[in-house]
Simulated scan of single mutants.
Amino acid sequence: MASRLGVVWGFIAHYKYLVVTLLAVLIVGFIDENSFMRRIQLELQISNLQSDIEKYNKQYEDDSKQLREIRRNPKTIEKIARERYFMKADDEDIYVLSDDEKPLNTNNETTE
C-alpha cells in the first residue's frame, strides 16, 4: 500500500504542473458556475428565446396589418367574425370541414 502511494506521489511531484492544469480545466470546464456546459445551455436558451422573439414579432406584424385593415374597411370585421368565430347571418348555415384524421382504436377489448 505504501509503495503505491509512493508511486502516485512521485508521479504527482514529477508532473505537478500538468496535474494542476488538468485539475483547473476540469473545475472550470465542468464544476464551476461559469462552466462550458453551463455556457452551452445558456447559448441554447438564447437561441430558443430569439426564435420566440421572431415568432412574436411576426404575430405582431400580422395583427397590426389586420387592425389597419379593420380600421380602413368595416367589412373586414364581418369577414374575421365569419372565419375565426364561425358567426353567421340568420339565413345562413355553416359547415366546418376538417382534415384531421381520427385516431385508430387498436384496443380490441369490449366494454360491458
Results as ranks from 00 to 15, higher is better:
Tyr95Arg: 15
Lys55Cys: 09
Asp99Asn: 12
Ile46Met: 07
Lys79Val: 01
Asp32Trp: 12
Asn48Tyr: 02
Lys58Tyr: 09
Ile94Asn: 09
Val25Ala: 12
Ile31Glu: 12
Gly29Glu: 11
Met87Phe: 05
Gln59Asp: 11
Ile40Lys: 01
Arg82Gly: 02
Ile53Asn: 03
Val96Cys: 13
Asp93Leu: 15
Lys75Leu: 06
Lys75Gly: 03
Glu69Ile: 03
Arg84Val: 09
Phe30Gly: 08
Asn48Met: 02
Glu54His: 04
Lys88Trp: 04
Ser98Gln: 08
Leu97Cys: 11
Arg71Ile: 02
Tyr95Lys: 15
Lys88Ala: 11
Glu83Asp: 08
Ile94Ala: 10
Glu43Leu: 12
Leu67Asp: 06
Ile31His: 10
Gly29Met: 06
Leu97Ser: 11
Asn34Cys: 06
Lys55Glu: 11
Val96Gln: 08
Asp63Asn: 13
Leu44Glu: 11
Ile46Arg: 12
Leu42Ala: 13
Ile27Cys: 07
Leu49Lys: 05
Phe86Ser: 10
Lys88Arg: 13
Leu26Arg: 05
Leu97Met: 14
Glu92Ser: 06
Ile31Ser: 07
Leu49His: 04
Arg71Glu: 02
Ile27His: 10
Gly29Thr: 03
Gly29Lys: 02
Ile40His: 01
Ile94Lys: 12
Arg82Ser: 03
Phe36Gly: 09
Asp32Thr: 02
Val28Thr: 02
Asp63Ala: 14
Glu83Thr: 06
Arg68Tyr: 01
Ser35Arg: 01
Leu44Tyr: 13
Tyr85Val: 00
Lys58Trp: 06
Asp32Val: 00
Ile27Lys: 07
Asp93Ala: 15
Ile40Glu: 07
Gln45Glu: 08
Leu26Thr: 13
Asp90His: 13
Leu67Thr: 10
Asn73Phe: 01
Glu78Arg: 13
Ala89Gln: 14
Asn57Pro: 00
Gln50Asn: 13
Ile94Tyr: 12
Asp32Ser: 04
Lys88Ser: 12
Asp63Phe: 14
Ile46Leu: 06
Ile40Ala: 09
Leu49Cys: 01
Ser98Lys: 00
Met37Pro: 00
Met37Gln: 10
Ala81Met: 07
Arg84Asp: 08
Asn73Asp: 05
Asp91Lys: 08
Ser47Thr: 13
Leu44Asn: 08
Gln41Trp: 14
Ser47Phe: 09
Ser51Asn: 04
Ile31Leu: 14
Ile80Ala: 05
Glu83Arg: 04
Arg84Tyr: 09
Arg84His: 06
Gln45Met: 07
Lys75Met: 05
Ala89Thr: 12
Ile94Asp: 08
Leu97Glu: 11
Ser98Met: 07
Asn48Cys: 00
Ile53His: 05
Ile27Ala: 03
Phe86Val: 04
Arg84Gln: 09
Arg71Phe: 00
Asp90Asn: 14
Tyr95Pro: 00
Glu83Gly: 04
Glu78Asp: 10
Ala89Ile: 10
Glu78Gly: 03
Phe36Thr: 12
Asp90Gln: 12
Ser35His: 04
Asp63Tyr: 15
Asp62Pro: 03
Leu49Arg: 01
Phe36Asp: 07
Ser64Arg: 15
Ile31Asn: 05
Glu61Gln: 15
Phe36Tyr: 11
Ala89Val: 11
Ile70Thr: 05
Lys79Tyr: 02
Glu69Ala: 15
Phe86Arg: 10
Gln66Asn: 12
Lys88Leu: 13
Ala89Tyr: 09
Ile77Lys: 02
Phe86Asp: 14
